[in-house]
Each structure stands twice: as C-alpha cells, then as structure tokens.
Design a protein around this nucleic acid. Structure first.
Lengths: 146, 146
DNA sequence: CATTTTTGTAACTCAATAAGTTACACGAAT
DNA sequence: ATTCGTGTAACTTATTGAGTTACAAAAATG
C-alpha cells in the first residue's frame, strides 16, 4: 500500500495555523515547517477549506481555523484529506460462481467496516486542542533540558 | 494511498483451503476463485506459510490450515500479509527547529497507534471460523432463492 | 522410471498514485 | 503599479501492488 502523509501533514498545518495565528502565515512559511513545497501545502489547505475546517482568502496570508480547536477532531481532518474510503481494501473481482468468491466480499466488507469504525472512533476522541497542547508540553520539556 | 487486496485475498485463500479440503486444491484452482494468477496465489500462500497459518508441500496440491479455523483471526491474517505497519502514515521529515515540526511526529504517532490498535482489536475478534460460517449462511440463502 | 503436474521464487513489466514541480491567472498588500 | 500570495491545472518522478515469464525442485501419475 502506497503511503499518504496528507493526513499528518494536514494536521500539522492546522496546528501551525493555530499556534502562529499572531504572525503572517503564508503557505511558504507553513511549507518550511512541514518540509515540503508551498504548492503542496496550498493543495492540502484547499481540502481543509472545502471541509469547513479553515477560512482562507486568496492573496492574503491569513488562514484562520473555522472552528475552535476543541471542536476539530483528528477524524474531521482525516475525512477532509482522505475521505471515508475503506481502511482495508477488498478485492472486488472474485469468482461469483464459487461459494467463497461469491460471498467473501460482502462478508469481509462487514468485518472491515467494523474495524474501520473502531479506528475512526479513536480518531474522533482526539481534538486539535489535544494535539496542540501535547505539542506545547513536549516543547516545554525540551526547553527545560537546555 | 495505493490499495492492497493482499489481506482480503489471503483470507479468501484460507477460507477456500478449509472449505474445499476434500478436493485437490492447487494454486491454479484457488486462483480461479480469487480471479488472479496462480503465481500471485503462491506468493500470498508463502506469506501465510511463513506466518505459521498453513502447511504446504512443494509439488503437492494439498495445502492445510496449520491451526483450527477458530484459532485464526483476521488479525493473524493481516499480520501475515501486511505486517504491523502503521495504518496512518506519519510524515517523518518535518522541520525540527519549529515547535510544530519538531514535536508533531511523536504526538501524532501516539494517537495513530491508539487508533490502529482499536482496529486491530476488532480484527482480532473475528476468526476464520466466523468468516467461513457466514459465507456458508449467505450461500445457503442464495440457494434457497433459486 | 520417465513424464507430467505443481510448488516456490526470482526477475521483469505494467499501472496507479502520492508528492513534488512548473506555470500562471487572480486577488491582496504595500 | 508593483510585489506578494493564493488557487489550480498540468506535468514529472518515485514508489509499489499486482500480474507475467521463466525455471529449478519436489511430488504425483501411469
């Protein structure tokens, strides 16, 4: 399975916007924190905007969260960036004339859905506020060690 | 994210081996049920053998489950085919000199791990026996409708 | 015991896609 | 008016899942 870092990068972007809301936050600045290109950041921000998680204005480097960080969960970010696609993919082309091939898609599909929902429930328990506060605690510890 | 059907195909193979244990089950026969090539089936069966889920003998079309179907869970099959890689991938290269970039990997990694474990616990609740019995029930219903 | 069948693997091709790049129109800031 | 920044489309590149070809080794077959 090819790996997507869109989910983690999008969460990164949201945390960055919230933590640095006082300074001018261009896609270039965010890109230097994510270590990618500004275009990639703008592409991800486009998804976040469509999902109603941020507000942006063309030409202006002032992205804002559209909701309070306590009201945005990791699941919201996941849906915004990856949609609600299956976590475990089914082989859709199996032999319908075989007892196994003709039934396994439906059977596994149900079990996979249950596992996906279990993961999504966990993601939904964590808010952007939790993420940001944990980041700040870790940073404070690092600073105390200097 | 590119999709892998190895997990579902491997489960398919295991169910097929158990249901058709009376007849001669070559990789060719299994491949016609999965609708793929025999080489792909043998490759997946290699993983299942390494994981201790099936016993095979070179040259002989007589694969056997190495354990009772009630003792093999979907999680066992998942580990055999996909390993214990992350469900949600982290961007490993973020700017360590930024508060967000320097801490988010560790923070998100922990939350992702929790979500992954939630999904894995669900997969571990379902056995191959459950899968097979559900397949047979669905087939019985189909037969009753003819 | 010679022939056929089948497994087990390596090496290759093909296709899909995530991510990065280039280019540019349009809006905002200065 | 000029510069800066966003929003997007189009293209390139790298990765990888899946299929294919090839073949050695083991087992089945008659």
């Amino acid at each position: 399975m090819r790996i997507s870092t869109r989910f983690s990068d999008s969460t990164h972007i949201l945390a960055f916007i919230e933590i640095y809301q006082n300074i001018k936050v261009s896609s270039e600045v965010i890109a230097s924190s994510v270590e990618t290109s500004a275009v990639v950041v703008r592409r991800l921000m486009g998804n976040l905007r469509e999902a109603g998680l941020i507000d942006t204005k063309q030409g202006s480097a002032e992205p804002k969260l559209a909701k309070d960080p306590s009201q945005i969960t990791l699941l919201d970010v996941y849906f915004a960036t990856e949609g609600n696609k299956p976590l475990f993919e089914l082989d859709k082309k199996t032999n319908p004339d075989c007892i196994v091939g003709g039934n396994i898609q439906e059977v596994l599909g149900d079990y996979y859905e249950q596992a996906k929902i279990a993961a999504q429930r966990k993601l939904n328990e964590t808010t952007l506020k939790d993420v940001i506060e944990t980041i700040l605690v870790k940073q404070k510890y690092k600073d105390s060690q200097k």
